[in-house]
Structure formats: C-alpha cells, structure tokens
Design a protein around this nucleic acid. Sequence first.
RNA 1: GCGGGCGUGAUGGAAUUGGUAGACAUACGGGACUUAAAAUCCCGAGGCCCUAGGCCGUGCGGGUUCGAGUCCCGCCGCCCGCACCA
Length: 874
Amino acid sequence: MTASKRQDAPERYNPQAVEPHWQAKWNDAAVFETQNDDPRPKYYVLEMFPYPSGRIHIGHVRNYTMGDVVARYKRARGFNVLHPMGWDAFGMPAENAAMQHKVHPRDWTYQNIDAMRSQLKVMGLSLDWTREFATCDVNYYHRQQILFTDFLKAGLVSRKTSRVNWDPVDHTVLANEQVIDGRGWRSGALVEQRELAQWVFKITDFAQDLLDGLDELDNWPDKVRTMQRNWIGKSRGLHMGFALTAPIHGFENIEVFTTRPDTLAGASFIAIAPEHPLAQALARDDKELAAFNADVRRAGTSEEALEKAEKRGFDTGLTVQHPIYADQTLPVWVANFILMDYGTGAVFGCPAHDQRDLDFARKYELSVTDTYFALNDDTPVDNEAFVPPKSQKVQYVNQPAGVEVATGDEGVEATIAWAENQGLGKGQEQFRLRDWGVSRQRYWGCPIPVIHCEDCGAVPVPVDDLPVKLPDDVSFDKPGNPLDHHPTWKHTTCPTCGKDAVRETDTMDTFVDSSWYFARFTDSTAENPTVPGTAEAWLPVDQYIGGIEHAILHLLYSRFFARAMKATGHMDVREPFKGLFTQGMVVHETYKGADGWIEPAKVLIEGEDDRRVARHIDTGEVLEIGSIEKMSKSKKNVVDTDEIIASYGADTARWFMLSDSPPERDVIWSDAGVEGAHRHIQRVWRLVNDVVAATPDDFSSAKPNSFSKDALDLRKVMHRMLAAVADDVEKLAFNRSVARIYDATNAISKAFAKKSQDADMLWTLREAVSLLVEAMQPMTPHLCEACWAALGNQDMLATKPWSEVDRTLLDDDTVMLPIQVNGKKRGDISVAKDADKSEVEAAVMADPTVQKLLDGQTPKRVIVVPQRIVNIVV
RNA sequence: GCGGGCGUGAUGGAAUUGGUAGACAUACGGGACUUAAAAUCCCGAGGCCCUAGGCCGUGCGGGUUCGAGUCCCGCCGCCCGCACCA
C-alpha cells in the first residue's frame, strides 16, 4: 500500500466481481474435490438433497449454508471432508408439470436441475460436484433395482394388499393430502377406497432394532428420537378372542388387542374396523353396512382424519360372550374410528376409561361400567372418562384378577396373567409401526424390477437384465399410469419359464430413492450400489442437516435401509446418521390486496410497529399485512434468492441466514436484516483495508516482545473470539458465533480508532483482522478470501489450517464476582481466579461495600460459588 | 383427536445448562460529517418512581431452592407431524 492510497477511502467491496473470481479459483484448484484414499481423518457432512422444483428456495440457502460452514470449518481443522450434492429427482410434481404443460417429466426435471445447480454454484458452497447424481439417472435407479431384488431375495420385501384412496375419474391413487373433503383434488370426484396389491418393505422386521438404535444416537435432537419412538410405538397388551355367541361366515371369535386389559371388566361393546374381514363379509349381504363402510372412509384414511371425524357406528346385531361375566354379552359394532392397521382391527370398548369409547357409548346408548376409581373417590363416570396414567394407583372393582388397589400397570399384568390362565388370550408386545408400502401407480419413479408370470408368479428381474429403464415415449393424455397403458413396455417374457409375461408397472415411492443416496455418494460411479470398505470408511454421516418435517419417515426409512443393506451384504453400517440437526424454516410476512396475495418485492412498508402500512409499490393500494408464514407460492411470500445474491452477493445471504435466529428455529426474512448483514460485510472489508493501509509497507510479522494494555486487551478479545467461534460452530450455534464476531469487529474498530502508532498495536491490529477473517471464512468465504489476499497472503484461505489460539490469552488472573444479598445483586468484588471458597468469603467479608451493605448484621449464611457468584443471606 | 415442540425489551435473540436477565443485531431517537442526501462514525434506550437510589420484570397461577428464564405441578396461547407431498 502506498501513502497516497492510504488517504483514499477504501473502495466498496464488490461481491459481483469478487465472488465469481474466487469461485473460479476454488474450482481451478479443485480444492473441494474429495479423494477416498486421503489419509486424513474423515468427516462426512450432508444436507438433505433438494427436490428439483425449479428454483433454489431461500430455505435451501439456509440449509446449505449451515452445512457449508461445518464443511469449511472441518476442512480447516484438518479433516478429509466429504460434502456432496445431488437431486431427489423422481416424484409427482414432474408428472403434474407433464399434464399441465405438456412437457416430458424427464426434460422438466433435468432443466430444473440445471437451473438449480447454477443457483447453488453462485452461493460458493464447498461441494464436491464430481460426485453429483440425480435419483432419476438410470445409473442411480439401476443400483436401486439391484438393492430391491436383493431385498426381495432376502425376504425383506413382500406382497400385501392395502387400502388406498382411489380417484375413479383420474384412475389414480391419491395421497392423503390430495383428498379434499372426500374428493380428488384434480377431478373433484368422490374418492373410493380400494384394495391394491402392493410391494412392502418389511420394516417391521426391524421394529425392535430401530427402537433400540435410537438410544445410541445421542447427537440427534431428543425431539426427533422421541418422535421416532412414538412412531414405532411399542406397547404391551393383551391379545384375546371374544367368542361370538353365534358363529357366522366361519368366524367363531373376534380377535382383539388392547393395551388396557385392566379395563376388561368394564367392556360394553366390540368395535371392528370397516375393513375388518368380518365387516367385509357381513357387508356382502347387507347393503346398508356396505354403504356405511364406504361412506365413513370417504374423508380419507389418515389417522388424523379418522381421529377428528365424528364417531360413527353400525350395529351388526352380532354379540359376543363377555369373557368375565358368563351372563353378559357384548354387541358388535362397525366403527369408523377403528384402524385396521393397528393391532387386529378390532377393540373392546370400555367407555368408563376411554374418552373415545365413552363418546361412542353415549351416542349409541351403550352401557358404561366402571372398573376402577380414583383412590377415595368412587364417583361414577358421567361424560368424562376416567383415564389415569398407568403408573397411578387406583381402586379396582368388578375385577376378576384379584387386584384391589394397584397401579394400572399392575392391573394390566394381573389381567394378562388371568387371561393366560383362563386360556382366553396372551400378553403381547405390539408395535404401531406398519410395513412400508412402496408401490406407486405412477410413471416418474424407479420401476419395480419384477415380472408377473401366470405360472411362476412374481419373478424378480435377473440382475444381468437390469436396469429396467423407464420408456421415454409416454403419454399423459389418458388417465391412469402411463406405464400401464404404454403399448409395448410392460410386455415381456418370464425370466424363469420363458412364457409371455407382464412387467410390474408400479414404480417405487420416492422415499426409497432418498433412503440410501448418502451411501451412494461414497462412490457415485461404482458398478454396484456401494463399494464394500468405501461405504464403511465414510459412513455414518457425521453431520446430517435438514428440515424437521423429515424427522420421522425419511430418517426411519434410511435407518431401515442401512439395516437391510447390511443384511444383504451391501454395507456394514447400522446407523446411517451419527449427528442430526433439524433446521427451522425461513418465514416471511404475507401481504394481501383486493386481487389476492402480493409478493414482498412489490410491497412498500411505511411507518413502524403497529402503525405500519403496506402499499403496493406500483398502484399505491393499501394492503393487508397478513401473518408470518412459511414461504410458499400460494401466499406469494417467497423471496427470490437470485435477486438477493445479485444485489448483495452470496456472502450477505449466507451471513444473514446464520445471524440472529438459532438455526433450529424459524427465521423471519426481513429486508432490514439483509441490509444489516451487508453492512457488516462492507465494514469488515473497510476495516481490513484500513488496517493494511495503516501498516507500513515493510510490515514485518516479527511479533513484539511486549504489548501495551490496549494491545493485550484486543489480543484477548480476538483469541477468545476464535476459540468461542470454533466452539459454537462445533455445536452448530451459528447465531452465537456471529454475535462473537460482531463483538470482535467492534473491538478492532475501537482499537483502530485510537490511531495508536505504536508498533505493538499495529502488529496486534494486523493479527486481529487476520483472525477475524479466518473466523469468518466458513461463513463468508468470498469476502474472506479477498481480505486474506489484501493482507498480502499468497495461499487460499480455503486450504489454510485453522489458527491455534494462544491459550495464555484466554483467562484472566482475576475475576469479578457479583455479590448478592438475599438473592439480589448489590455489588461486585474482584478476586483471584483460583481463590478457593474460604479465600473468597474472607475477601467478600472484608470488602468495604459489603460491610456497608450488611450494616452490622451478621450473615446467616454465605454461599460462595467459585468463579460464579457470592450470595449473602441475612 | 393423538404425538412433539415453543413462549424473554419495539423486533430477532443471548444468558457458561440452577448463579449479574436483556450480550450481539435490527428498528428507533439524538449528535458528528455533508450545501443536501446516502454512506460512515459517536451516544442513548426493559418498565415504573422526581433523583441518589429503589421497586417491578422472562405467557399466566402455584411450588422447590440461599438463588429459577432455566427444575416441578396446573393453566393459556402459538407452531409442527400423523404413514401415497418431498
């Protein structure tokens, strides 16, 4: 730097020029390409790969920025970091686009991928693009078909019928969310329930192991582990048969599973699901029942829909024997709130101790019998069921098992023992988890590699014949699955007997695609799905980052896949994700005008707080300021990432995404927040250049032998910042590292403003900005590379190891202890850092301010927490 | 309905996990610089009481403790998931 240059105001940092420059340099030096044979310790950081919807959403920016900070930080810490990117590319939206815009799903998808890849590239993410793939690449789904056939051979896949929402006009299965008020979202037709033969992955084979595995996942949020535990839903109960008083259609018993056998004495009816074989058999002769069965399932079969629906029942007229009281029978009803998928699809109703049963009993005037009461309160149940936790002691009545006062758990076990003794039933562990149906009647998915032969049944396609490729020439003009009505694709011959046969035309659930992609990244071009040794070397993923919406399904399916791949010899990894982080959403205020929702870019806000007024930027129309919501196209509250990056640069977007909000919480997008982030970027650039300019041209890095107090203070701030940022990034507490960096920046500014010309301060300032730039590098990599170069460095920051902090600067010799009197802060005292309790107490009692506060009183107690606080109780 | 989570200034949040509540930022107010604006820099700020100083204060009501934003019990409010959306 020359003297004349020093007097010029530094140029504003120009991200539009700087960012592409460094992206090109990183790319040319291939600094983010990862080698499998690199000897350094591995670190695998992965963000949930995106669905190629067409645009990178600001939520993606947040997700990938977090992952990138971890990747860059770990790289600086000497790890061989794997940080790949791919595309979760199969799925319904591509088919919807095909139907609406007459574009081929493949073209639509790959165009979207191209567009989104360019968007990701301008973000400056440290990704290894050489490993990129899309799940719709034949190379990928080919290997998925290998996995499927291996799972099939290992007995992990089977055929099962299950009910689906069927749209009779579109000839398609509807997702629960596509059923709106009992009608198909597109056709508007009344939805029917259909039994469909499906391929299922036998995830229930691993129910116990999936449950047990959660205990070791201590780098997962407790919340997610709890959700998975509840989802797997292990419970102990009684499985027993209720004898029909008159056998019918070959049924002698109705098999029931209950988790509350302790209420057996209060049973007053049997309720079976509309899909229960007995209900179906009866409905064949009973039109009214058939109509009831169809009608109650119209609103959809999601648990939510069933639980929310009004309780409805149909009296079959059948009765069963009460298992305890020989003189009693119980009526058998078909009820809409019974799930065929859980237990046996039949329950006994005990209205006194289950609210749902009580509602049902009151509606249909069935009897209500108490089996137990709260201790010392035998008020009979009226319209509120008495449902104590199983651990609570209750007083039993009408009980066969000889319990009188016991906890519910004891009552459960006593009843199970009694029932087993009587030969009525058996104690059983029951899981809520159901097998995973993977068949989808759609085109844009991985074909299920199976051939149906009249003689040989369902035969897997031989591995040598794989892949089963999707045909290109498909039409979406007709309703139904294009693979099914394709003129030739499905017709083939049986691999076993050679007879004419047809291909399976269902494709796989897209969750299958995302259940093993993390393993494929370890060698994305391998002939087999994975390379033994390589997969194990990289897996488990050390840090997985994604949305909480995947807390259950995607993560559980992936955990199942790891087990299934182990069982079939594809990789020896039990838990695929060692660390999991679930990030919050990016939300934005919504604006509504007379003609509907208005995008934020078209809105001008005037005034502040509750006097804020939103106006349309063109028309001046006053708009309604709506609630803050997840960004969505329908509410038009989407912020365009391209525009943000074009006007502020990627570093600003990255910095803003990391600031303020804790990463697990939702962040509200605000223009002011972005401006603030950008100001900081500019400020750092200015500060670094000012310091460089203030340093003599022949600046040497010779470290001074001694430092003034000001210089020492600044060094302490900077080294503490560096240590704290490292600590926070390890914990993914990015918002805290950002706050530390702001703090440190303020400290440098203040020190610089003093314009000290002493050599030790100049050296310290130079050290300070270097450390600042290093600490910020994982978050704002382009700016920091530019600053690093401005500081005269030849190497790239992206490859520079993290600086060691000077431990001697981290602690002070003395600490300020707050002094409380009766829990209220009254003063401070400075004591030696390593002073023990008695020394601190002595110092405190000798302190004049304390003497004054005590005013002659003798303390009852003095509580000293070393290095923390002193509390004097008087 | 079931399950899970959250609640701290005007706003986003911090608080070493039971030890000084409000760091840092945004918005705001005041000042400096400027013909002016932008940019930049400096200062102020939880509420209440006239001040010294004090009182109150982490959704609401109780409790445990020398000490509670943090732990326990009971409410209120908001958000998320519920198996074919990805």
